[in-house]
Structures are given as C-alpha cells and as structure tokens.
C-alpha cells in the first residue's frame, strides 16, 4: 500500500497505458474475429479447423508465446500486442460463431422472405440478434487480455506489469501489490461495465 500512496500518479499513468494497450488490442482483435466468426458460422467445414486452430493458440502458455514473439519482433509493445490479439481470437470467434448460429431460424426466414439481401440479413438482423452472445465473448476476452497484458512489463511494453516485474526484481512488495491491485481493479471495472452492456442488449431483445 505504501508504494501506491507514495506514487499515485505513476501507478495511474501505468494503469492508463495498460488500459490503452488492452483497448487497442481488443479493437484489432474484434476486427479480425468478426470476419472469422462469420465465416465459421457459415461454413460447417471450416468451423472445426478455425476453432480448433484458435483453441490451440489459446492453450500455448502466454510466457512461451511471448518468448517466441520476442524472438521474431524484438522487445517492446509489438510482441505483446500480437500475443493479446491472438489470445482473444478464440473467445471472440467462438462467441461470434455461436451467437450467429443461435439466431432463431424463423428470424432468418422472415429476413430472407422479405427480400433482405445477404449483406442486410447479416447487418440488420443476424448480428444485432447475436449481440448479447458476442458481447459476452468480448467480456471474457477483455478480462483475459487485461491479465495477459501484464506480461508487457516483462518485455518493455509498459503497463501495470512494470510494477509487478520491477517489484519482483527489487523485492519491493509494495510495488507488486500496487501493480496487482491495479490489474484486478481494472478487470473488475471492465467486467462490470461489459456485464451491464450485455444485460442492456439482452433486455432490448426481450430475453
């Protein structure tokens, strides 16, 4: 606690970097996952390959993946960022796929029958109806990303991990506690707000 009280602005700044890194990684991850999830929901043949492949990435220990990526991209933010995007894929794609395939067939039938083009069916009917499940996936991915982003501190990528790894090196328990507390707090905050979003879109659909 002492460290936190003595250095509030440093902790806050690192928390800000941490949050920005997570937000950017999630934004890129969603942009990559959306087409993959749509593809997976439409193609029973590709689905097991996609989800299996992304699941395999997900099971690689984060430190091992990071070590590999550092070999390829050097120290700094880049390897961490790539790791975060890669890890989030499994949770995001799986939920986008499940959400789209869970859309009531009567809804799809009505949409097609009224003359919506395939693009409109997706944008105006299927994705909005799948949104609660997709946001659910985003929530899980966000929490995992916040945790894994701690590793950035180890390879010079910044964020709250800096406090934890420096604390470990300097045997400074206060520093470790400040970093850990920050990560937890961030996770709780993001989890709460995305939970609220999830509930809001669900109520809107009458669920």
């Amino acid at each position: 606690m002492n460290y936190l009280i003595a250095n509030p602005e440093r902790v806050l700044r690192l928390a800000g970097t941490h949050a920005a890194m997570v937000a950017a990684a999630l934004a890129v991850a969603v942009a990559v996952a959306l087409p993959l999830g749509i593809l997976s929901s439409r193609s029973p043949r590709l689905r097991p390959l996609l989800l299996g492949g992304l699941g395999a990435i997900y099971t690689i220990p984060s430190l091992a993946l990071l070590a590999l990526l550092v070999q390829l991209f050097g120290l700094g933010l880049a390897p961490v960022f790539i790791a975060l995007v890669a890890y989030a894929q499994f949770m995001l794609v799986r939920n986008i796929d499940a959400g789209l395939r869970g859309v009531d067939p009567a809804m799809r039938d009505a949409a097609v029958g009224m003359g919506l083009s395939p693009r409109m069916q997706l944008l105006r009917v299927e994705l909005p109806l799948a949104l609660p499940v997709i946001v659910g996936g985003l929530r899980i991915a966000a929490i995992a990303t916040i945790a894994i982003a701690t590793l950035a501190g180890y390879v010079g990528g910044g964020g709250l991990g800096v406090l934890i790894f420096n604390g470990l090196a300097l045997h400074n328990t206060g520093m470790i506690v400040a970093g850990s507390l920050g990560v937890s707090l961030l996770a709780v905050l993001v989890d709460g707000s995305l939970r609220w979003c999830e509930r809001a879109v669900r109520t809107r659909l009458g669920g």
Binding site: A106, D109, M114, G115, L116, G206
Partner: peptide
C-alpha cells in the same frame, strides 16, 4: 430472388417480428 421477394408479402406462424 431478392427483388422477387420484395414484391411478395410474407407472414409466418412464428410472426418473425424482429425483436430489436
């Protein structure tokens, strides 16, 4: 087919109103 369907009214048992 898309143009054809726009000229044909379609109502189904499940109603199919879009909940959102």
């Amino acid at each position: 087919p898309v143009a054809l369907r726009r000229g044909i009214g379609y109502a189904i048992q499940a109603v199919g109103l879009f909940p959102h």
